[in-house]
Design a protein around this nucleic acid. Structure first.
Lengths: 247, 247
DNA sequence: CGAGGCCTTGATCCCAGTCAAGTGTCGTGG
DNA sequence: CCACGACACTTGACTGGGATCAAGGCCTCG
C-alpha cells in the first residue's frame, strides 16, 4: 500500500543470466506478446526488459502517474482499478500469467495497478518498446490484436455491468475464470479465487454483502461448492452457463 | 430494421470518381485512420474502399455475423450494441464522423451496428485492410492507437456503469457529448442528442423513465435546458462536471 | 488468548425499475 | 382543414433488488 519503489525489489537484467540452455529465451518466451517471435527477436526483447518479484497488495503504479513502462505478468495476479473521489472503486480487470498492462494515452496511466498475490512481472520502458515495435512489425500486430481482445472483453463487461442481475454477474464471473484457468492448462473446477470478496464486488458493480449472499445462494442451489472462500467448485456448469448468458 | 442489403444502397467505388481537384483524396482524408498519411498512401486506401449512404435505423451488421468489413463514418451517427437472449440491450458506444467500427476477432462481430440518423460510411474488406497494414506501417500504428483509445473509453464506461448514480451517469454523458462536439468544431452547447431516450438508457444502464426523470430534474435545478428532446443546453458546466466526476 | 481481517448473515432502507396514464408531435388520410 | 393513430417522451404511483447498517463467526498472527 505505501508507495514502495518498484526498484527496491529483486530486479534482474536478463542479460546478466548466462545459463547454458539459453534460459533467457525460455523466460522471455513466457511473455505473451512475444510468444511466436523468432530466436533473434526474443533476444532483442530480452535486452531491454527488467524482471521483478513483487509482494501481494503492491501498488505497481497509480492512475494519473506518468506512463513510463509496460508490464507483463510472468506469474501471479494483478487487479486494475479506477477510483471516484469519494472512494467508490471499479475494478477494470483481473490479470494473470501472460497478460500485459500499462498501455495508455500520454497523459498518465488511466487506472491503478495492484498485485493481488505475490507476482513476478517484467517491464519495458515505453520508449524502448516503441523502438522495438518499429523494428519488429509482427510485434506491433500482436500488440494490436491484444488491444482488440481487451476491447472485446471490456464490451462484454459493459453488458454485464449495465444489464445483468447480481446472480448473472457472479455466474458470468465464475464461468470466465474457469475458462481462463483451462486455457492456462489448469483444471476448470475447482477454480481459485485469489481475490477478496471486496475485489469481486468492485469488479461486478456490487457490494461485498451481495456477492457473499449470491455465492451462498448458488451453493444452496447446488450449482457451486465453496470448500473455502478462496476456491469454488463448479458443480453445474450448464446451469452456470445459462445464468451467465441471461437465459 | 429489415435486413436490407448494404449493397442495395448507393455505393460508389471511389476509383470511379474523376473530379479535377482530386476529390478522391479529400474524401478519403476524412477517414480518421488515414488523417496524416501521404498523398500516395491515401491513394492506395482509396483504391480499396467503398462509399455508401445509409438511411436511419439501418442495421449495418449484427452481432455474430461473419466479419468481412471495417467501416468508417464520414457523416452521421451509429450505435453499437449487444443483446441478451431476453432482449435486454447494452449500447457499447455512440459513434460519429471520423469513428471506425467493425474490428473484432475472427469468430464474428461482437456487437450489432445500427445507424441512428442517415449516415455516410465507407468500408474496406478486412482482407484488403490487412494487406494495407503490411504496406503502410504508420497505418497499423494508427489503428493500434485508436484501439487503445477505445479501450480507455470502455474502461471509463465501466466505472460509470458499475459505480455511478443515475444523475452522475446522465451528467457524464452530457459532458462527454459536449466535449466531443467541440473537438469536432461544433459548439459545446447546445449539444445535439440524435439518439432516443431508449438509446441513452441502454447506454447508461438505466431505463427510459429514469433517464427522462433525471433530465427533468437537472432542468429543474437549472443545470441544463431542454428546448426540445433532441437538444440540450448546458447551463452550468461546472455543476455538470462535478456531478460527472462524482464529487 | 486477544486483535484485526475477512466473510457471512439478518434487518431495514432507498434508488431505480415497473406499471400505468397522460401529453405532444408528426404523418396520413378523409 | 381536421381527425386519427403511431410513436416518443414525460409523469405519477408503487415495487423490489440490491445497498446500507449492524452483528456475529471464523480464520491468522502476534
Amino acid at each position: 500500500m505505501p508507495p514502495l519503489d518498484f526498484d527496491s525489489h529483486k530486479i534482474e537484467h536478463l542479460a546478466d543470466l548466462k545459463s547454458p540452455q539459453c534460459r533467457n529465451c525460455d523466460i522471455v518466451r513466457e511473455i505473451a506478446f512475444c510468444a511466436d517471435l523468432s530466436h533473434d527477436e526474443v533476444k532483442r526483447l530480452a535486452a531491454v526488459r527488467c524482471h521483478a518479484t513483487l509482494p501481494a497488495s503492491f501498488t505497481v503504479f497509480r492512475e494519473g502517474d506518468l506512463v513510463d513502462h509496460v508490464y507483463s505478468i510472468s506469474n501471479g495476479a494483478v487487479k486494475l482499478y479506477k477510483l471516484l473521489p469519494d472512494g467508490r472503486r471499479q475494478i477494470i480487470g483481473f490479470l494473470f500469467s501472460g497478460d500485459i498492462f500499462g498501455l495508455g494515452t500520454n497523459d498518465g496511466y488511466c487506472y491503478t495497478a495492484e498485485t493481488i498475490t505475490a507476482t513476478q512481472v517484467c517491464r519495458f520502458t515505453h520508449r524502448k518498446l516503441d523502438s522495438l515495435l518499429d523494428e519488429i512489425p509482427r510485434l506491433e500486430r500482436r500488440m494490436f490484436n491484444m488491444a482488440v481482445k481487451d476491447l472485446v472483453a471490456a464490451q462484454e463487461q459493459m453488458l454485464l455491468l449495465g444489464r445483468k442481475t447480481a446472480r448473472e454477474k457472479v455466474a458470468t464471473f465464475l464461468v470466465k475464470l474457469s475458462m481462463r484457468a483451462e486455457r492456462a492448462g489448469q483444471p476448470g473446477s475447482p477454480v481459485a479465487l485469489p481475490m477478496s470478496r471486496a475485489d469481486i464486488a468492485d469488479y461486478l458493480g456490487l457490494t461485498i454483502e451481495t456477492v457473499s449472499r449470491t455465492f451462498t445462494q448458488l451453493k444452496r442451489d447446488n450449482i457451486i461448492g465453496l470448500p473455502d472462500s478462496g476456491h469454488c467448485v463448479l458443480n453445474d456448469w450448464q446451469a452456470l452457463k445459462e445464468l451467465a448468458e441471461g437465459a
